[in-house]
Nucleic acid binder design. Sequence first.
RNA 1: GGGCCGUUAGCUCAGCUGGUAGAGCAGCUGACUCUUAAUCAGCGGGUCGGAGGUUCGAAUCCUCCACGGCUCACCA
Length: 492
Amino acid sequence: MEETNVLIEQRLKKLDELRRIGIDPYDGQFIPDSRTIDILSKFKDASQEFLENEKITVKVAGRIIALRDFGKAVFAHLQDYTSKIQLYFRKDILNEKFLLIKKLDIGDIIGVVGKVFRTKTNELTIEVADFLFLSKSLRPLPEKWHGLRDIETRYRQRYVDLIVNPQVKEIFIKRSAIIKAIRDFLEQNDFIEVETPMMHQIPGGATAKPFLTHHNALGIDLYLRIAPELYLKRLLVGGYERVFELNKNFRNEGISTRHNPEFTMLEFYIAYRDYIFLMTFTEELFTYVANRVLGTLKIPYGEHVIDLTPPWKRIYMMDALYERGLPESIVSDQKALLKWAKDRGVTLENANSIPKILDEIFKELVEPDLIQPTFVIDYPVELSPLAKKKRDDPKFVERFELFIASREIANAFSELNDPIDQKERFLKQLEAKSLGDEEAHWMDDDFIRALEYGMPPAAGEGIGIDRLVMLFTNSPSIRDVILFPQLKPEQP
RNA sequence: GGGCCGUUAGCUCAGCUGGUAGAGCAGCUGACUCUUAAUCAGCGGGUCGGAGGUUCGAAUCCUCCACGGCUCACCA
């Protein structure tokens, strides 16, 4: 990027002038002893008299974000990771070093040594006794009131967004806290965290289109994983009874406010439990995280207030459909079902079977109303090739999806551990694949082999972490909770 | 992929039915030792997203393209 403009040239000139008098503004060594937020809170109530007597000297480092020049005195604001504090430079204190302030720009990173005092307007300020260039900024920052608004620039140059939009920085701090809380909760419940392959020879564990890559030395194609599920279940076979993995999945599909091609997923598996157990466990997990990160169970999201107080609503998928007026008498009559759905404006492009039609009806007529946390229970077996069938109704599986604010946040089921049933389900998926269903599951012979050694009965769940963070930070787009969302290249 | 909207100075934005580009902030020069949207005086800064077209004349109208946003479709 060879772009130059007057502003950059002026800064390059200052850099050159500094170097000519023997100052390399990238070569500074400085270890701060205070963070701005600690100074501000420690002396929050200290009077100017007290500060005058105590002569408290601090060392802080950070970025200059405002400069006000008065000739023989200069005010500035310095921002570090925690907050920002005012600096006061005086010619009669800094003497010849005061001239260096002419080379200082908004955006520069400096280290400062000085005394804490209060200005006439009562603002805690550092009277600078000495300062050091730590990094010269060559590009101008966005202006101070409007900041950086342009969404494209905010995503492409997130570093600038983070410098000038403090609320953006807060979101990612919160994201980190959420993930830490999840890990702590699972570890308190005797789970261990594992890492399974991200490069799969057979992409499995979800219905989705994978990314394809190639390993040169092995001479084979590999797929970026669409889910870790089948590997985590192999670990159940191996004897781990509580495992989780919290990391990226990759799906070669559309990008939207709810989809990024790489996204973060929590999957966890627990032996000797079923999906009913997981509903309560999920309520506990969410309330633990919400209490720790937000300090409340009532969280604002868009125009709604989501109440995470358990127990959450539970409804059978089919009952939800009947509640919307679907006549029970037509659910096994594909033609009648199609007509009923079409009459209500449901789009049915790929719905070529009864379960898929039901799924479409559900998405269009039920999901939008699922604002408060709701477990939707028991799905048609065809939609869930890795879940255990219901004992009393083999057309359905023991599965729930958790919806909050009309979004699917979690998906869980009692895991299918019957190798013969699993093999048949895979064969059915292969059939669908041969009929053109690009996203049907692949046969995974090694996974069948693992099940043949015996997998304990278990329950497993996946939680979309990005969507969870969206919910907890009141963010309308997934790009607001992913530091570097995927975009098309800038230059063609 | 479809529809709608957007792209003008480093940033935030004006720019009417077509007449050759503006403001604020930021920057530069100068004044100013308690300001905080500092103030005052002066100055510089543009491939108007790109390419074609219409026109005497295009930031403005038309076409195509690129990128982005929202939305629908697709999709956990």
